[in-house]
């Protein structure tokens, strides 16, 4: 908070993965910012690069796997792609905690869950962490009978409880940012509602910022302040969660919103987009959405559309936004 600037800032961030076939560009000129205490949802379909963005906040992909070729990412004022391993270790956990889609994969299967929370507490405050604090954290994330659960192993817990433990581990060091990558995707809808409610509560109480990665627009809208839509390695639209999905501008966002079946709406054809999301390495030239775009013009195949801001905090990478036909 002392820095004044945003907590997270992506600036023209371009990332390449090392593959057997040579470098593969997976993110291309991503601009994003998250202020202290703010919730940004990053939405996109598979292959859009949303998870890579989340992993880049604390540079979880090693130099042997990924390289930033242009721009960069700053977390709490630190340029993470220039920082050394020691500085990164300080950022991971203490400044930014991570929660992933599969809680089981994030938990140590042969360690009692209470010990894992304790380890997370001690990692950043070696001395004073206590068992009582562990139990308080487990209770805080809504785990019933926390004293009992603390002594159990991950496999003895349901998916919903495992995710709560993973959230407790991520939040125990009181990070300023929680990076949550599809945290509710593996959960049933009623349990998903519980975990989203928990994240909203914790955010109110602790005042942390959240970077939420999700493919579910409804989840994004229900928790975020702002939403950024990613397509083929680029942010194509960004705006406030309260208004963007009811008034999407970019043809891709409009298509996504229209493709969701909704309860109580007319049956019949769902608006669908032909084709699929292009994989990295086969991105088309010009606007990357133009081969699937219902309103593409010949120029869209040639020119890379610039970012157009058309309202406070709302902008898109399409020069022909919404037109008269507001979805």
């Amino acid at each position: 908070m002392s820095m004044g600037g945003p907590l997270v800032e992506f600036e023209g961030f371009t990332l390449e993965l090392r593959t057997e076939q040579g470098p593969l560009r997976v993110l291309d000129g991503v601009d994003l910012r998250i202020d202290e205490g703010e919730v940004l949802a990053l939405v996109g379909e598979s292959g859009s690069g949303k998870t890579l963005c989340a992993q880049s906040v604390t540079r979880l992909l090693g130099d042997d796997r990924a390289r930033c070729t242009r721009g960069g990412v700053r977390l709490a004022g630190v340029d993470v792609f220039k920082a050394d391993e020691r500085a990164l270790r300080r950022l991971r956990g203490a400044t930014a905690g991570h929660v992933f889609q599969e809680p089981a994969a994030a938990l140590n299967p042969v360690m009692r869950v209470g010990d894992q929370v304790l380890e997370s507490l001690r990692l950043h405050r070696p001395t004073e962490a206590t068992r009582a604090e562990v139990v308080r954290w487990l209770a805080r994330v809504g785990i019933p009978a926390p004293e009992h659960r603390a002594r159990q192993y991950p496999h003895e817990l349901s998916g919903g409880l495992q995710q709560r433990v993973a959230i407790a581990i991520a939040l125990a060091p009181r990070p300023r940012l929680l990076v949550a990558d599809e945290p509710t995707t593996a959960l049933d809808v009623t349990v998903q509602a519980q975990v989203l409610e928990l994240l909203r509560e914790l955010r109110r109480e602790v005042g942390m910022a959240i970077l939420l990665v999700t493919h579910n627009l409804g989840v994004a809208e229900s928790i975020a302040d702002r939403i950024a839509v990613l397509y083929a390695g680029q942010v194509v639209e960004e705006g406030s969660a309260a208004s963007m999905l009811s008034n999407p501008s970019h043809p891709y966002t409009r298509a996504l919103v229209a493709a969701i079946p909704r309860m109580g709406h007319a049956r019949g054809e769902l608006a669908s987009v032909p084709g699929g999301v292009p994989a990295p390495g086969s991105w088309p030239g010009g606007c990357r959405f133009h081969p699937r775009c219902p309103v593409a013009r010949p120029s869209c195949a040639m020119e890379t559309p610039p970012w157009t801001a058309f309202a406070a905090g709302h902008g898109s990478r399409c020069p022909y936004p919404a037109g008269g036909d507001r979805a």
Partner: peptide, 22 residues
């Protein structure tokens, strides 16, 4: 009713409190 209200859908207000337990 709990299932219906738990479905996050853009443009739809959140339903009542989430169902407890599993």
């Amino acid at each position: 009713a709990a299932l219906v209200s738990a479905v996050p859908e853009p443009g739809r207000a959140r339903g009542g409190p989430a169902l407890q337990g599993e």
